[in-house]
Amino acid sequence: MARSAVAVPAELARRNNRVIRPQDAAGIYAQPRPEFARLVRNGAARKLAQGYYALVPDRHLGSPAWRPDLHSLALGIAQCDYGEGGAALMGVGAARVLGAIPRAVAVTVVAIPKQRPPLDTDYGRILFVRRTLDTLDLERADTELTQGWITTPEQTVLDLAARPTLGGLSQGAVTEALRALWPRTDTELLEELGRGQRKAAALRRARALVDAEGG
């Protein structure tokens, strides 16, 4: 498909978050839903789930094989609903973006400020966890669809060890992720977070798993 055949309004194309909802384009289109369907047909967007779409990055325009990254789209969806400061990838999602999980997974986890049921998208399942984001240790990350917050290696270690089954990883995969993250952590910060978040037991569990695997 020729790039010239794809027409995305400038107001949408320059958004920091390339995940969009029809209501986000209410001031651009008189009837956003039919226009979004047209963008999907033209290859300029992908439908993610009911009410959510992703604008195809410029470098992938004209490539029908492109699939949005689950963790990136999950962060984008959460930002749509709770704002950039109200969402952060955590657990499996953060570990994957941090490079601690080498293989693609079909589930991701996002911290948000309220209870919400899982969302099944065309590219995987999003699990939402209610967390007070200003109590988490976060860092900025660039993803293919948005920029936003993810948990730091230290926070991710604690979260994986505290809830190892969240996201459906095997115990071996969790241990592998912990081992990959461990050299990147600050011991003093880990201990401080463990005490402050009442996750001292999770920290001991993580250390035991890493030591056992390393031995």
Rank of each mutant, 00 (worst) to 15 (best):
Q50T: 08
D24Y: 01
C80Q: 12
V6R: 12
E192I: 00
A25E: 09
G124K: 12
D159N: 11
R204D: 14
Q23A: 12
A25R: 01
G62F: 02
D58N: 10
E154D: 10
L12A: 03
M1H: 13
N42D: 15
G43I: 07
I126A: 06
V107H: 14
V109S: 11
G91S: 13
M1G: 15
F128N: 08
A25W: 06
A13F: 08
A180D: 07
A180R: 07
Q50G: 05
A13Q: 08
A45D: 09
S4P: 00
D159A: 06
M90N: 01
L61M: 11
L178M: 04
T185C: 13
A162I: 00
R204E: 14
T187P: 06
L193N: 08
L89P: 05
Y123A: 07
A162E: 13
G215Y: 09
D69Y: 07
A13I: 08
Q147S: 14
T152Q: 06
G215S: 11
G62H: 03
L98Y: 13
L203H: 03
P183R: 04
P34G: 06
G86I: 02
A25Y: 07
A212D: 13
A173L: 13
N42T: 15
A173K: 15
W182F: 07
A206I: 03
Y123K: 09
L48C: 03
A200M: 12
A212K: 13
W182N: 01
V92G: 03
L178E: 05
Q147F: 09
A106H: 13
L133P: 02
T156G: 11
T135Y: 08
D186L: 01
P34S: 04
V40Q: 09
A206Q: 03
I126L: 14
R140D: 10
A10Q: 13
L73P: 02
R205T: 14
R130C: 06
L193W: 04
A206H: 06
L209M: 13
G124I: 10
